[in-house]
Design a binder for these strands. Structure first.
Length: 1033
RNA sequence: GCCAGAGUGGCGGAAUGGCAGACGCGCUGGAUUCAAAAUCCAGUGCCCGCAAGGGCGUGAGGGUUCGAGUCCCUCCUCUGGUACCA
């Protein structure tokens, strides 16, 4: 047998680890703890993807090495097991989703164990476990029980929420409603994708181009009562606390942008008292456009000619003046009154350039503002906008649309009336749902203004430096969004943008017209799904005598958790937009408590819920009393290293952080952040494919003549004719210039690239098959050897066989592969290490150790290959080098390492053997070549700081340096201390030579010394290969 | 559009501002073999040259530096993310 046979070795050691519970972590760490977490997988029916073991191997290496270095390691695994595919399967097969889920989990578990990861399997969990769901629901109740205290910036129990006297006076129900309005979990109407044909609500990703992904049926948006989580309350903290995290900057940036904090100002524009649209009141007399408040010369108030009408609704100057005076006394109100349109802007410095305003179609003031004469067109526009999905509003609709409401607001800074439009490029959900439009200095406003022929007034002078045509900007023919100097802004002329913003914001505040404001792109988290296969909400709706909901809810008592999913006779949609749980059995759906009948909440939680806190449950997964014992939590948290895919950079990581912060505020956890260090593994693509194209006639078409049309089919650029993509055997391709061409036909460019693995492309690599053919150790090693962990990289089966070759060589280096049993190779001996062998060993130890620390697994493996190449060549291979090598290899390829360790005479697993250490002194080479750059008139070496080479080089007058003076004389001065190898050579051991290198193109100095004695030999090469030693100066 | 990351041999990739291409794949030659596989040895960036040797080389162009794959600026290409957030 003793050829390397992973199939037997791997099974053997997996059984050993399992039997000995080798990787069980203690309840509490002893000594320094290390919590290393993998993003747990969704157990799909397809089994493990080769992308999974990439991060899992990386963390496993870290953990195994850390154990050997004496750390107490927590390394658990589990399953994110709720999810759509299981429910789809349930509908198709009419079996409970739990069944297929458990099957898939079992398969994933088998595959993970097959790869030899050192998880503590006793901590395994699945988010679908009934006991896990209990605590997910419990956390939801914590969130439900919490309100956010803005002053303290902290979540607090709802009982601590101050209740205003008038609410208290209105009675118990009013108090409860008031509390409900302030909870972090609250109900709200939110649109869902309702597909009448399928009779079900679809997730966003199931809707493609406004049609259902399955079947292509029309999808409409319908408002439905849903649960929301008030993540926006934590926006500030979620953003601020990113600073201290050891996360990739790109991920932090992604989260910052997602949170999207902006500072600016809210400003109130006066719209006049009064009535519900229609005819003007006494306060808002019709004013002829172009007269009155508008200033001469400039393009008046910007009402498009064709929509001007005398019955438009415009506040009178007198009313405005009165309002302004009142405001100066009353200050700026928290909530805008009926008489103003409140807008949010990040550019208060451009207030003087506002030539129109836009409110979102859903804005509550639309009705009130629109005069009767314009009702029709406004209403029509609103309906069109409402019918559009989010997608239509953005991608498809490039051109901006809108309609004039017929109303005007008065610009508070100059008293000018400004026409108010509605347009769907303004979103009700951001800011105040209304903007002042400054087409001169905002891209979107500019586009809109051009579209509807609205005047454009420049109020920021870009100056000459800016990247725009200044004259065009000043003339309103080009938009400029940068900072500049204020113009056309009476009272603020010449102010530079940042100072102007501050100043006018302060001025508006003193006049009670505005205030500084902060806004976030982040929206509250839509936390319910109309699905069966998710955690039920532990919420009961009160019913009145007639069986209708009263609007009041109560939480399920903690002792009654978990609320389990009911048994359903079938999982088919019931054809209404309400969640599937609506067809639950009566006894589940309508519990009776204290004689009162309730209806259970039938929405379920989204898949994110379970993954928000699993890292906490691992620590104490069998605790029936608490979600996690505080003592255990304090000892192990935070997670020291979290590795997973970049696709979770925003949502999962933001949601987890949010839950964690709520739990922190409520005293359940002790760290403000869950994941101290985060690393994203790169994507693994399929094997590189070579593609050529042929037209209908079968003639080759060069890849550069091909473009991709809609639906992503290739067509010829010239005539749009469809072409066929043909897979090309690499043997029929050759490199030509930048890319590949058809062999023998350089005119035909081919396309060479790797694609994402997908079933449809047929390029999915199955880990089971790789393990069968090459072994788990080879798969692990290959995944680490492919390239940097964070990089996207293509798969290559040849690469797998390459690392397998390394394992074979490592095996033969130690084992006699011709013997019948596992026996050491005859070359293995007990000799002492020669200086050179010792150096190779210590170099390897150092490199591998340091590479693991910086997650440079590919180079660590390269160093071990070098070790093997060196020692395999020797006829006598000392154990003293082989044994430490096996330990170094063990985190990467643990099965073969255990087997080799055993062959070397050890009886126990190497899992807790001390990690090898290196001795710097052993690394010193007694002969090094030092390159010296010579460059004619002024050749000096580097800074002289580099440990192994800096001794030569650096300016001539620098200590420990050699160099060439301006005259072109090379001074080879070498000091032993410059080597940085402590004790190997003492300072003072130096030699000096000078060579004339005026004719030299490069020089090479070879420095040889024994310990303590320095000597230098130098070869400098001139243009003709002339050795300059022959020509000393 | 915007944001982020990346462009180095035939391929995957190495290289704290200091000999570009470590290591692996592939390829070429040799040993072993009846033969093949496997294994071992040698070679392998490109161009010129029998050779010695020489020239050119890290997406393009500029710059900083004694010295740039590495730092700065401009541009090109690719990958990923994102979509009117006022």
């Amino acid at each position: 047998m003793p050829r390397y046979n992973p199939a037997t070795i791997e099974k053997k050691w997996q059984a050993y680890w399992e039997e000995h519970e080798t990787f069980r972590s203690p309840r509490l760490p002893s000594g320094e703890k290390l919590y290393v977490l993998d993003m747990f997988p969704y157990p799909s029916g397809d089994g493990l993807h080769v992308g999974h073991p990439e991060g899992y191997t990386a963390t496993d290496i870290i953990c195994r090495a850390a154990r050997m270095r004496g750390r107490s390691v927590m390394h658990p695994m589990g399953f994110d097991a709720f999810g759509l595919p299981a429910e789809e399967h349930a509908i198709r097969t009419n079996t409970p989703p739990r069944e297929s889920t458990e099957r898939n989990v079992a398969n994933f578990r088998r595959q993970l164990k097959m790869l030899g990861f050192s998880y503590d399997w006793s901590r395994e969990l699945a988010t679908t476990d009934v006991e896990y769901v209990r605590w997910t629901q419990w956390i939801f109740l914590q969130i439900y029980d919490t309100w956010f205290d803005e002053a303290l910036q902290r979540g607090r129990p709802i009982v601590e929420l101050p209740i205003p006297a008038e609410v208290k006076a209105a009675g118990d129900a009013a108090v409860r409603r008031y509390q409900d309005e302030h909870r972090l979990a609250y109900q709200s109407e939110a649109p869902v994708n309702w597909c009448p044909a399928l009779g079900t609500v679809l997730a966003n990703e199931e809707v493609v181009d406004g049609k259902s992904e399955r079947g292509g049926h029309p999808v409409e948006r319908r408002p439905l009562r849903q649960w929301m989580l008030r993540i926006t309350a934590y926006a500030d903290r979620l953003e601020r606390d990113l600073d201290a995290l050891d996360w990739p900057e790109s991920v932090k940036l992604l989260q910052r942008n997602w949170i999207g904090r902006s500072t600016g100002a809210e400003v109130d524009f006066y719209i006049g008292e009064g009535g519900t649209g229609g005819s003007p009141t006494s306060a808002d007399l019709p004013i002829d456009v172009g007269s009155g408040l508008s200033t001469g010369g400039q393009a008046t108030s910007g009402t498009p000619r064709d929509v001007r009408a005398s019955h438009d609704r415009k506040p009178s100057e007198a009313a405005f003046v009165a309002w302004k005076a009142a405001r100066a006394k009353s200050r700026y109100p928290k909530k805008p009154g009926e008489d103003v349109l409140r807008i949010y802007t990040t550019r208060p410095d451009t207030l003087f350039g506002a030539t129109y305003m836009v409110i979102a179609p859903e804005h509550p003031l639309v009705d009130r503002l629109t005069p009767a004469a314009r009702r029709e067109s406004v209403e029509a526009y609103r309906q069109r906008a409402a019918a559009k999905s989010d997608l239509d509003r953005t991608e498809l609709a490039k051109a901006k649309t809108g309609v004039f409401t017929g109303a005007y607001a008065i610009n508070p800074v100059n008293g000018k009336p400004v026409p108010i439009w509605i347009a769907d490029y303004v979103l009700m959900s951001y800011g105040t749902g209304a903007i002042m439009a400054v087409p001169g200095h905002d891209e979107r406003d500019y586009e809109f203004a051009v579209q509807y022929d609205i005047p454009i007034v420049a109020v920021v002078d870009p100056g000459l430096e800016a990247d725009v045509d200044r004259n065009a900007v000043l003339a309103g023919r080009e938009v400029f969004t940068g900072n500049g100097v204020a113009i056309n802004s009476p009272g603020y002329e010449g102010e530079v943008t940042p100072a102007f913003k501050k100043k006018i914001t302060a001025d508006l505040a003193t006049q009670g017209l505005g205030r500084e404001a902060v806004n976030y792109k982040l929206r509250d988290w839509l936390f319910s799904r109309q699905r069966f296969w998710g955690e039920p909400f532990p919420i009961l709706h009160e019913l009145d005598a007639a069986g209708n909901k009263t609007g009041l809810v109560r939480a399920v008592e903690e002792r009654d958790l978990p609320v389990n999913l009911p048994h359903l006779d079938d999982y088919k949609p019931h054809g209404r937009p309400e969640p599937p749980l609506d067809k639950s059995p009566e006894e589940w759906l309508y519990p009776v408590i204290d004689g009162k009948r309730y209806k259970r909440e039938t929405n379920t939680m989204p898949q994110w819920a379970g993954s928000c806190w699993y890292y906490l449950r691992y620590l104490d997964n069998e605790n029936a009393e608490r979600m996690v014992d505080p003592e255990v939590e304090r000892a192990w948290m935070p997670v020291d290293l979290y590795i997973g895919g970049a696709e979770h950079a925003v949502l999962h990581l933001l949601y987890s952080r949010f839950w964690h912060k709520v739990l922190y505020d409520r005293g359940v956890v002790t760290t403000p952040e869950p994941f101290a260090k985060l690393v994203n593994q790169g994507m693994i693509l399929g094997e590189v494919e070579m593609t050529g194209y042929r037209d209908a006639a079968g003639a080759w078409v060069s890849a550069r003549e091909v473009k991709f049309g809609e639906d992503n089919t290739p067509v010829r650029k010239a005539d749009g004719q469809a072409v066929e993509a043909v897979k090309i055997d690499p043997a029929n391709a050759e490199k030509h210039g930048e890319g590949f061409v058809l062999k023998g036909n350089a005119a035909i460019q081919l396309e060479s690239r790797a694609f994402k693995m997908s079933k449809s492309r047929g390029n999915v690599v199955n880990p089971d098959q790789v393990v069968r053919e090459y072994g788990a150790d080879a798969l692990r090693l290959y995944e680490m050897f492919m390239g940097p962990l964070e990089a996207t990289k293509p798969w290559s089966m040849d690469g797998v066989s390459g690392v397998r070759g390394f394992l074979d060589r490592a095996w033969r280096m130690i084992i006699d592969d011709r013997a019948d049993d596992v026996r050491l190779s005859a070359a293995v001996c007990d000799d002492a290490l020669s200086a050179e062998q010792n150096r190779v060993l210590h170099k390897t130890i150092k490199a591998v150790t340091e590479d693991i620390d910086r997650l440079g697994f590919n180079t660590a493996i390269a160093r071990m290959m070098e070790f093997t190449n060196y020692f395999t060549k020797l006829d006598r291979r000392p154990r003293a080098a082989l044994a430490p090598f096996v330990l170094l290899l063990s985190p990467f390829a643990p099965h073969i390492a255990e087997e080799l360790w055993e062959a070397l005479g050890h009886r126990e697993s190497l899992a807790y053997e001390p990690w090898p250490t290196w001795d710097e002194a052993a690394l010193v080479e007694d002969s090094i070549e030092v390159p010296v750059q010579v460059n004619g008139d002024d050749a000096r070496g580097g800074e002289g700081g580099r440990e192994d080479r800096g001794a030569i080089g650096g300016e001539a007058d620098r200590e420990g340096a050699g160099g060439a003076g301006a005259a072109g004389v090379f001074c080879g001065e070498v000091r032993g201390a410059g080597l940085g190898a402590r004790g190997a050579a003492r300072s003072g051991d130096w030699a000096q030579r000078e060579y004339d290198i005026r004719r030299a193109t490069h020089a090479r100095i070879k420095w040889e010394y024994g310990l303590g004695t320095g000597s230098l030999s130098c070869s400098c090469f001139g243009r003709n290969g002339h050795d300059l030693r022959d020509d000393p100066h």
